[in-house]
C-alpha cells in the first residue's frame, strides 16, 4: 500500500493524522539530514523538522503540484525555515566544519527507505560534481546556499566586489549543473528525474 505525495498532502489538508505520519516516515531522514547540514546542530535541526511538519499540518502550506516536485518544495520550505532561524539567532557559523555529533547512516542499506537510497545515490553524484569545482567556487556555493548570506556579506567574506557576486554564484552553479547533466536524465526545463 503506498500513496503518492500529492495524495498524502491532500489528506493532510483534511487533518488526516495517518497521512501526516506516513509522509513524516517517508521524509524524516531527508529533511533532518538537510536541516542538520544547514544548522550544524542536532537539536536545532530537530526543531526545524518540527516546524516544517507543524506548518504542513497547521497552516496548510500551499503546495501546487504543477509548480514542481513535492520533495523539492518540502526541501525549499526546510531551507527557508533554517535560514529564518539562523537569521533570528544571528548565530552564523563559519564555513565548512560540521560538528559530528549526529550519527552517520552506515553504509549498509538494510532497512533504508527507498527515499534514503535515492538520496545516497544522488548525494554521491553531486558531491563528486562539487569536487570538480574550484575552491573559491565551492566556497561561494556554500555561503550562498547553505549559509544563505546576503550578497553584501558574501562580497565581504570573500573579499570580492559586490557587483560580481551574482555572476560568480551563477557561474559556479552552472558548472555544477553541467557536471551533473550527463549523469542524470536531465530535462531542458531544469527538472530532474529523482
Amino acid at each position: 500500500m503506498s500513496f503518492t505525495d500529492e495524495e498524502l498532502y491532500t489528506r493532510i489538508l483534511t487533518k488526516d493524522s495517518e497521512a501526516l505520519e506516513l509522509l513524516y516516515d517517508k521524509y524524516e531522514r531527508l529533511v533532518f539530514s538537510f536541516a542538520y547540514r544547514m544548522m550544524q546542530d542536532q537539536q536545532r535541526a530537530e526543531d526545524v523538522v518540527q516546524d516544517v511538519f507543524s506548518k504542513l499540518w497547521r497552516d496548510h502550506a500551499p503546495y501546487e503540484a504543477d509548480r514542481g516536485k513535492f520533495s523539492s518544495w518540502l526541501l525549499t520550505m526546510t531551507r527557508n525555515r533554517c535560514l529564518d532561524v539562523i537569521r533570528k539567532s544571528s548565530k552564523q557559523q563559519e564555513v565548512g566544519l560540521l560538528d559530528k555529533d549526529a550519527e552517520r547512516v552506515n553504509d549498509t542499506m538494510h532497512d533504508m527507505p527507498e527515499q534514503a537510497v535515492e538520496w545516497k545515490e544522488k548525494s554521491e553524484r553531486i558531491r563528486e560534481a562539487l569536487s570538480h569545482l574550484k575552491e573559491d567556487q565551492r566556497k561561494i556555493v556554500e555561503l550562498f546556499y547553505f549559509h544563505g548570506y546576503s550578497q553584501d556579506r558574501i562580497s565581504k567574506d570573500l573579499n570580492i566586489p559586490l557587483g560580481t557576486v551574482k555572476g560568480r554564484i551563477r557561474l559556479a552553479l552552472q558548472h555544477l549543473r553541467k557536471r551533473l547533466e550527463p549523469e542524470r536524465g536531465e530535462f531542458a526545463d531544469g527538472t530532474s528525474d529523482v
Binding site: E28, R29, L30, F32, S33, F34, Y36, R37, Q42, E46, V49, S72, L75, T76, T78, R79, A102, E103, R104, V105, A116, W119, K120, K122, S123, I126, R127, L130, V141, Y145, F146, R170, L173, Q174, L176, R177, L180, G190, T191, S192
Partner: peptide, 17 residues
C-alpha cells in the same frame, strides 16, 4: 530555484536522534 534544486542532496544522510 532550478540551479540550486540539487544542492540539498549534498548533505550527508544522518540518523535522526
Amino acid at each position: 530555484q532550478a540551479l540550486s534544486e540539487d544542492l540539498p542532496y549534498v548533505s550527508e544522510l544522518v540518523e535522526p536522534p
